[in-house]
Design a protein around this nucleic acid. Structure first.
Lengths: 95, 95
DNA sequence: CTACATTTGACAAATTCTGACAAGCCAACA
DNA sequence: TGTTGGCTTGTCAGAATTTGTCAAATGTAG
């Protein structure tokens, strides 16, 4: 399963855009954009929204990947506990 | 659905223990313990383990609630995106 | 070799987290 | 009513983490 950065990179390369160009639109350093695509850093929500706009991608799809990445970070090492915890959370969300 | 703090409070009250006593075992301020039970603050993993020991509770059960709480914090407002994000994560964890 | 895109590591600034302390609230009861 | 005891709340300083930048390194096509 892809993380957000991989998805962004795909979209960017399909459109023959440079990291630098996307970074410019977000008004951040190219280095940061590189880290985001490689999954070294999380983007902020606002950055994801801007990226979606610039790459003409579905905003909700990218935001969902963005949220999944953040959740994955929280799970961290606790892969044993995670499935149950996820189910608990899922139930909570239904209400 | 209960959060970790509520579960802890239940266990503690069933055994007629005071906040102060649990806090002493963790070597933290009673105020902090109060916040943990009320869900104002997250406990650390180590604290949860100590609490489970002291209250003779199932460690994994408490840790699962602890992880669920942390995941819920990350979801925050994004309740619309959360179900899809949760599914993505669930798939990732299978591998 | 040069030029250009990307990656990496180190860093300061900003932000968030942690636990303590002190004051406050409330119920039980002398 | 006043006091005691348990819990709660607000605030704060220090610790830890996150954020974005810069400079240097790496990779790569011509």
């Amino acid at each position: 399963m892809k993380h957000l950065g991989q998805k962004i990179r795909e979209l960017r390369e399909k459109q023959n855009l440079l990291l630098r160009q996307v970074a410019a639109h977000l008004e951040v350093d190219t280095a940061l954009m590189s880290k985001i695509e490689r999954g070294d850093r999380n983007a902020s929500k606002q950055q994801v929204i801007e990226i979606a706009k610039f790459l003409k991608a579905n905003e909700d799809e990218l935001l969902t990947l963005w949220l999944a990445d953040k959740l994955e970070n929280v799970v961290g090492d606790e892969k044993d506990l995670a499935p149950d915890a996820l189910n608990i959370l899922k139930k909570k969300l239904k209400k």
